[in-house]
Design a protein around this nucleic acid. Structure first.
Lengths: 251, 251
DNA sequence: TACATTTAAATGTCTGACATTTTAAATGCA
DNA sequence: TGCATTTAAAATGTCAGACATTTAAATGTA
């Protein structure tokens, strides 16, 4: 089913690729059992350790799961949204933090994606979704809330907006974009006034969804984007200024 | 920097998680060198094999890279868009194929996401992007083209539309959604007439982008979505019918 | 200085062993 | 026979030690 050219480097990566290809192409189907580690070692003419390293690579991508014991082994895993979310969010977060993505760019992407599902959400939002949004709005209005908790609630609100579209593919794709913003948002110190403004936008969005008014929701979202961008730019400007002062002081 | 509770199961997964957390939290920064395998084995009080399996998990997620030789080792990897694309597309493809996502749902998600970046693309598209789109349109009009090549070109066209927005975060998020559709699209047999229709929509989109008319682009995209949905439903209906006939014949 | 050689440190691979988990089969007993 | 218990086998998880290979720094030499 899979052969290995006599390249000399990174056997475990090659073996992982061969098995991964078999899974992605549909040659191996969900819940099918892979040969045992010993058998794979024979087939590929490598040691068991090398096979194990290959299998761990696949396990890290949730492509297989392993069971111990007799009649155990490695099985092709049905990739679930729940499993995929985690990686998606981790990857998106790292992409932002490691590549110096500016607040502006991240913000634009996030709201563009949210606008993509607002019309659908206005059409399909369930009572549950609406209740979740109202609950988050209520939490965001609590006076003693820390900035981190406020941001977390903000993310939860927007997740509800996305999930309201009732399209799991959309939810999956947007989970990363929305959650990856949180570290950037966490750098913002929310004054009482800015919180009040944000909650106001949230209420407008929830109201619009409640009466299934896509245009009103879209407009509120647009204004929220502009406001968020404004807040973010203020913070960045202040930070850059402090940075410059520190530099000139130390020089 | 990281400790390991005395759970007895899946040491390599626990170690991978500890290191991953250190990377995601920023405790370890890009290009920082991890301790050698032997040192990690000491720190975690496990064997070198176990450490290696943990490192392979992280390598599979592109979180680290390894270099052989003196002064080599494992280094925190700067996660690039190029690396992330691959996983993103693989995961999105598997999610669709393994979870029985219907053509309708996938199609809706894809076009919703594309609509999110059409206004940006109309505003910012470069001459290069426009040239790419025209080139793909030209290819799609070739008579001898196979269905697979037509689909691949279709994906390339829509990738250009997305990239036109000039926002790498958007491009990353949408790569999976667009490319994951290809296997589903490949099941469609494109007649000469349907190809002609699709090329017509593509021309309208490119024209709209050329004169920076977001609304016209949006409208053409909407109609293309409806048309694609129509094509897909026909195919699915035909296939289901054939399936039923086969069932009743064998029964 | 420039080039060749040596050396050390690290990952990559192999072998063989033992521990643990889990299920199926075998066994024993009423 | 029927059921509970025990046993055996198969598989993954872990460990220890060895050797191969790669790489860059250190060293030696013309």
């Amino acid at each position: 089913m899979k052969i290995d050219p006599d390249n000399k480097s990174d056997l475990s990566a090659q073996i992982a690729k061969a098995i991964r290809d078999a899974i992605v192409s549909g040659d191996m189907i969900v819940d099918q059992r892979l040969p045992s580690e010993a058998e794979l070692a024979d087939q590929f003419a490598v040691s068991r350790s090398t096979v194990r390293e290959a299998l761990k690579r696949l396990a890290a991508q949730s492509l297989i799961r392993t069971q111990r014991g007799a009649f155990g082994g490695a099985f092709v895993n049905r990739l679930s949204y729940e499993e995929a979310y985690g990686d998606q969010i981790t990857t998106a977060t790292l992409l932002l933090s490691m590549n110096g993505i500016s607040f502006d760019v991240a913000c634009e992407a996030r709201y563009a994606l949210e606008r993509a599902c607002t019309p659908l959400s206005a059409e399909r939002r369930t009572a549950d979704i609406l209740a979740s949004m109202r609950a988050e709005i209520h939490r965001q209005a609590q006076p003693g809330l820390s900035d981190e908790s406020f941001c977390a609630s903000d993310v939860a609100f927007h997740r509800a907006l996305v999930d309201g579209a009732g399209n799991p593919v959309l939810s999956y794709q947007l989970a990363g974009a929305v959650e990856a913003m949180q570290p950037l948002m966490n750098m913002i110190t929310f004054t009482a006034r800015s919180r009040e403004a944000i909650v106001g936008f949230h209420i407008r969005i929830a109201d619009a969804l409640e009466v299934r008014a896509p245009d009103a929701a879209q407009e509120a979202l647009h204004e929220l984007e502009a406001y968020t961008l404004h807040l973010g730019r203020d913070v960045m400007a202040t930070r850059d200024k402090a940075e410059r002062n520190k530099d000139s002081a130390s020089a």
